[in-house]
Structures are given as C-alpha cells and as structure tokens.
Amino acid sequence: MLTSWRLRALRSLYVFGLIAGVAGLPAYAQSPAQILNGYTAQSGAAPVPSRGQQFFTTRHGREWACATCHGVTPTGNGQHAATGKTIAPLAPAFNPERFRDSAKTEKWFRRNCTDVVGRECTASEKADILSWLIALKP
C-alpha cells in the first residue's frame, strides 16, 4: 500500500517527467502568416508591403542594406557581405523553412536590424518587411 508521501513523490516524478518530455519537443511550427499577424498586432497598424520593400532595399545610414546580402529580390541565394557565406532565399515561397519559428525569426531580425539600421526594428517595420516577402511568388 502506498503511503501519502510516496504517492506525492510518485506524482511529482510523473509531473517532472512530463515537463522534461515536453521541453524536449521541437518548437511549434508556425506559418509566416501567423508570425506576420503577431507583428501586426504588436504594431497596431496594417502592414504595407511596398514600405517593406523600400526598407529592405534602402541603406539606413549604415554600410549595408538588407538587400546587400539577401539580394534586391530575395528569391534566390544571397551571400553574406563580410563572410561570403551563402544565404538561402529569404522569401517563404522560395524557401519553405523561412519564418516558421517566431524565436528564430526574432533572433535574425534583431541581428540583421542592428547591422543594417543600428537598432532593433520596430514591429511595424518587421510587419512591412515580412508582408512584402510573403507577397513574392514564383
């Protein structure tokens, strides 16, 4: 017969095992549209794809624009300006792996915006850029 403390200990182990198991699962796969909806909600304004394209192709007082590495139309491979490393297409229609994980998307927006703009991009800027990238079709 299990005593109350043993039963509590078994329950604790079970809950710990569930938490550990869930933590090892891959992140929930999102769609580019879901990530765009998140940025749109944060910004409180509808995204403007043409504004995203302009942001992407323009230098913002720094050495590079987004297009420097990703290409003016990011539907093919790009090349990192400093390392020469090949960069897979950025537009989701040409690379289905793009914009499927919000944490990864945030990581790269943070890094690239810092390089290109010298600060983190706003939710509105991210929504504009992503809406333009989603609009690019084969």
Rank of each mutant, 00 (worst) to 15 (best):
H70V: 06
E63V: 02
P49E: 02
L13T: 13
L10S: 12
H60L: 00
A45R: 13
L7G: 08
S50R: 04
G21H: 09
L7D: 07
A65G: 00
H80G: 04
V15W: 13
F94N: 06
S4R: 15
A9H: 08
N77H: 14
L25E: 11
N95M: 01
W64A: 00
A27L: 11
A91N: 05
A27V: 12
A20S: 15
R59F: 07
W5Y: 08
V22Q: 09
G78L: 08
S43V: 00
V22W: 13
L36M: 05
P26Y: 00
A33L: 07
A82N: 05
I87A: 03
A29W: 07
P26N: 06
G24V: 10
S43L: 02
A93Q: 05
V15T: 13
F99W: 02
R51I: 03
A41M: 04
K85R: 15
G61W: 02
T57G: 06
W64Q: 04
P89M: 04
R59E: 14
L25F: 13
A20E: 12
I35P: 09
T75P: 00
V15A: 14
P92S: 03
V72W: 06
G44Q: 12
A65L: 01
P26V: 07
F56W: 15
A33T: 10
L13V: 15
M1T: 11
L13G: 15
P74E: 07
T58S: 11
G24C: 14
L90N: 02
I35Q: 04
T40H: 09
R98W: 01
G71P: 00
D101C: 02
F56Q: 05
T83M: 09
Q34L: 02
Y28N: 07
H60Y: 03
S4D: 15
